[in-house]
Lab assay of single mutants.
Amino acid sequence: MAAAAAAGAGPEMVRGQVFDVGPRYTNLSYIGEGAYGMVCSAYDNVNKVRVAIKKISPFEHQTYCQRTLREIKILLRFRHENIIGINDIIRAPTIEQMKDVYIVQDLMETDLYKLLKTQHLSNDHICYFLYQILRGLKYIHSANVLHRDLKPSNLLLNTTCDLKICDFGLARVADPDHDHTGFLTEYVATRWYRAPEIMLNSKGYTKSIDIWSVGCILAEMLSNRPIFPGKHYLDQLNHILGILGSPSQEDLNCIINLKARNYLLSLPHKNKVPWNRLFPNADSKALDLLDKMLTFNPHKRIEVEQALAHPYLEQYYDPSDEPIAEAPFKFDMELDDLPKEKLKELIFEETARFQPGYRS
């Protein structure tokens, strides 16, 4: 834990890192770190609560700039109880001085990944967590956004079992017609939660990839272990087919990539493993919904509104309290091709509203 900075004593240090967030945020305490930044909790002297502050230093890398800009653009436009918001952003007053960006968010005690390492969940908890994931996802999908990296560590939890989806750095506007060349190379989302079509096709992607990830998360809540822990690309596919069985001819016809289709045709026939054999203690309604989410063919996979209306979630289902976005989200430009200098300018502009004396 960093010592509390005395008023006016300059930035606090946390594990050798400068955290320049005073005077409003003090009493910093280390939480963890990701690929390009550290997260601390801090005391907000204005709202009198502890908050989470993520320090991001992305400006050396085009990919990190892209992810940072995506996350900020999306989260500043989203407003939903099951999606983490941005409360404040701290950065230098000029673009030349801006080396880091500090993002202030609600402090959540833990995440689903940490929880599943230590606790076996009751059916009631599984049901409530799944409902909140789908409630947040309904809003995301209504904005025409794909999260693309749903996994237990991106689901934040607090002691009252509130759940918030975080990390929109890989999110995209849904565009089933656009052929994202190089899709697989830039697709760094965790393999275990990846839909089979991501490994088999490169053309376009749809909201059904997020539903697949939610199915993987439900299976993990039922058993405290990942359902498809593939060691590499082909191993991942083999794990999936080992449980779902061989795809039907109709399902194979959806695979545009001939090499991928021929690979699947070359494999020995596998039978589907019954879900109640894998999860003998699970609620039968939970397994019915799991089956509809972990469907090989993305066109037959359940959609988020149908999933919310499934009998497993009937005690929570309330369409009048499951809000959607006001308007579909649009990125003005494809960020993939922009140089990091341009992305830095866009991050600077996007964060201006939090600067003292800002006038829109």
Rank of each mutant, 00 (worst) to 15 (best):
N224M: 08
A219Q: 01
A307I: 15
D88T: 14
S208W: 06
P23T: 03
R172V: 04
L218Q: 01
E109V: 02
T190G: 01
L278Q: 00
F331D: 09
N144M: 09
G37K: 03
K138P: 02
K207D: 09
C127Q: 09
L69N: 14
C254V: 09
R67S: 01
E197S: 02
L76D: 13
A4T: 05
A309H: 14
E71D: 01
I84G: 12
E197L: 02
E345Y: 15
K55H: 10
I255L: 05
V14T: 13
N27Q: 14
P319F: 10
F296L: 00
E303V: 03
E334K: 01
E345P: 14
N82H: 09
K259D: 06
K207P: 03
D318C: 14
A52W: 03
E305F: 14
M98K: 01
A352F: 15
Y128V: 07
F228I: 00
F296E: 05
D111F: 08
Q97L: 00
Q62Y: 10
E186H: 06
L290V: 11
N297P: 09
L155C: 11
D321I: 14
D332Q: 10
T118S: 01
E186W: 07
A260F: 06
W212D: 02
M221A: 06
L234F: 06
L244D: 04
F59N: 14
Y131E: 12
I90G: 15
L267E: 10
A52M: 00
I302Y: 09
N253P: 10
D177E: 01
I255T: 10
Y193K: 02
K330I: 11
P280R: 08
L258A: 10
R91E: 10
K99W: 13
H147C: 06
T63G: 09
V46A: 12
I103K: 03
H125I: 02
D162P: 13
L76N: 15
L289C: 06
G32L: 04
D177P: 07
L265A: 09
K73A: 03
G182Y: 06
D321R: 09
S248C: 09
R353Y: 08
M38R: 10
R15F: 09
D179L: 07
I209G: 03
P356L: 10
A42M: 11
N297T: 00
C40I: 15
N47Q: 05
L346W: 14
G37E: 00
Q306M: 14
S142R: 13
A327R: 12
C161A: 10
G242W: 15
I324L: 04
Y358A: 10
A9V: 11
S360N: 09
I74C: 07
V214Y: 01
V101G: 04
V145L: 01
E334L: 14
A282G: 15
Y113L: 10
N158L: 03
H232Y: 08
G32Q: 07
S142F: 13
R194P: 02
I256W: 07
H178Y: 06
D44R: 11
P11K: 04
N276S: 05
D251E: 03
S320C: 12
R191T: 03
I211K: 01
E220G: 02
L137V: 15
I86N: 03
H180C: 06
N281Y: 00
M38S: 07
S213D: 02
L116I: 12
R148E: 02
A35R: 06
F296P: 06
N87G: 13
P229M: 10
N154H: 02
K344L: 13
L156D: 02
V14K: 09
T351M: 14
K300I: 10
L163W: 08
L75W: 11
K99T: 04
Y263E: 03
K207T: 03
T118L: 09
T110D: 07
P356I: 15
S246F: 13
K300C: 08
L264E: 07
